[in-house]
Design a binder for these strands. Sequence first.
RNA 1: UGGGUCAUGGUGUAAUGGUAACACUACAGGUUUUGGUUCUGUCAUUCUGGGUUCGAAUCCCGGUGACCCAACCA
Length: 578
Amino acid sequence: MSTPDTSIEKKETLNFIEQIVKDDLAAGKNGGRLQTRFPPEPNGYLHIGHAKAIAMDFGVAERFGGVCYLRMDDTNPQKEDHEYVEAIERDIEWLGYHWSKVLYASDYFQDLWDFAVALIKQGRAYVDEQTSEQIAAQKGTPTRPGTESPFRNRPVEESLRLFEEMNSGHVEPGRMVLRAKIDMASDNMHFRDPILYRVLNMPHIRTGNKWNAYPMYDFTHGQCDYLEGVTHSICTLEFVPHRPLYDLFVDWMKETRGEDLADHRPRQFEFNKLNLNYTLMSKRNLLILTKEGVVSGWDDPRMPTICGIRRRGYSPESIRKFIDKIGYTTFDALNDVKLLESAVRADLNERATRVSAVLDPVRLVITNYPEGQVEELEVQNNPERPEEGTHTIEFSRNLWIERADFKEEADKKFFRMTPGKETRLKGAYIVDCTGCKKNEQTGEIEEVYCTYDPTSKAGTEGANRKVKGTIHWLSVDHCLPAEVRNYQCLWTCENPRDAIKQYEEEHGVRGIDAMRPFLNPDSICINRNAFVEKFLLTRQPLDYLQFTRTGYYNVDPDSTPEHLVFNSTVSLKEDKGK
RNA sequence: UGGGUCAUGGUGUAAUGGUAACACUACAGGUUUUGGUUCUGUCAUUCUGGGUUCGAAUCCCGGUGACCCAACCA
């Protein structure tokens, strides 16, 4: 199959981070080097919000001739797993980005340990033996300064000895932590003697049983950036208050290691993270949805995860296009999913193979078409791209059409099939509707009748007359049954995150119980009465399709020739008359 | 009532002291063998009050509103 040219068109304006990078490069900062990193924690699946960060981290490096490493931020073995490492790599590749190296924060555990020991010796860190409750109580509040720990000024040797013990495996988690000695009265809460190391006594996915005490995020990230040679450490806005601490630890590390090259220093920049209306993004909440069975898994097509979106039928190009459109700023935006849908429609319009599928069938009999006659008609795979060729579809006397495409009595806004009016059967003939048969009890329409104009075959001269309505169809004896899963938003409210939080506060419940009131009961609708054309047997899992006049669909990975399964990606845009 | 960040149409982004632009949505219409696509048109005195300036979305001051920070998470 040929691939449409969907390469991202070059943007004319730079976002504020690209501008900084460009200026830094022009000024010869960092010795003219550009290095970024994408640092996910392997504790869950990537979602579309990560795609925005990926597009920034890899994108800026690509654009300005730098490098971008993938660095797993694996400092908390309680939550991390190989499963996630593999999924993260798979998803980044699917999005079309390439890392020059995969690194792990745990690669630097020894450096961080040595650095921590040095800080203790310098009197800049101490082991605190208070409980977490005591430490929290002493932290103060944003409006009230904290108080100093009674262990703050303990002898260096004592801290050194206890720090070693923390890593021995014989100290109970929670018994003691290593803290930096900074300022318990700082306006920045992160400066109130932050915790550097905690005891977990737990094997790590990479380092096994080597370590029992593990470094915290703030004591890891900047130093890893520094040791790796990252020049621009780009992250989201919630890390703005961490930046002074990031800089402080980098300074301390430079000083301790005696490396005072002014150029050799990473700097942190922050952009707004992706918020989408009718979408819940946080990993914690997505985990609840999978655990509670609200969705079938991380790759449920309703999930905002990369794997969910992929299974739903989105193309990587459409996601990149969307991210390109929403841009990067420092404004806390709530983006409209309609922009994402428009991006996927634009992309799929270019690449999706057009096929016929009847989702709610009613029988149409062409009374003047000979019984037993079958014609093989040629239909275009994609009218937007004639070079994609054609495929054949059988036509006969008995067809399936959509129930909604026939009305016994129609107003003038309805221009599909109705008695006494001509309708075009797409790619076949023009027909004249003659009537229908109804169930005597229920009044339900059981069959629709029409006659065809044999001179109006598609592609011939006789087809060239104006017919207002065109409908799709399938030959009853030549189509296949299929399961079609139709999806809608998982949430009924624009901002589920806030709605859930508010519900938690008002009703004193948490987790799934606070989510249930906002879940859309119609988010999945499984249709087992659908029919599709035989041509679909040739399609592969995840292939992009358009069910003509209905929407974009793709082949679910569970689909087999014996049991065809399709997922709705997004509907076609609809004009109101319908 | 502390600190940090932010504010441009319904949504998001641009305009780097000089005519407020673009995309999406919505609405109206043309084309069309998909009520799709495509094409045309319509929709803002830039949160507010003052100041600086020949000139302010942009710079300064005061309001107002929103978000982030008090995890041994990242």
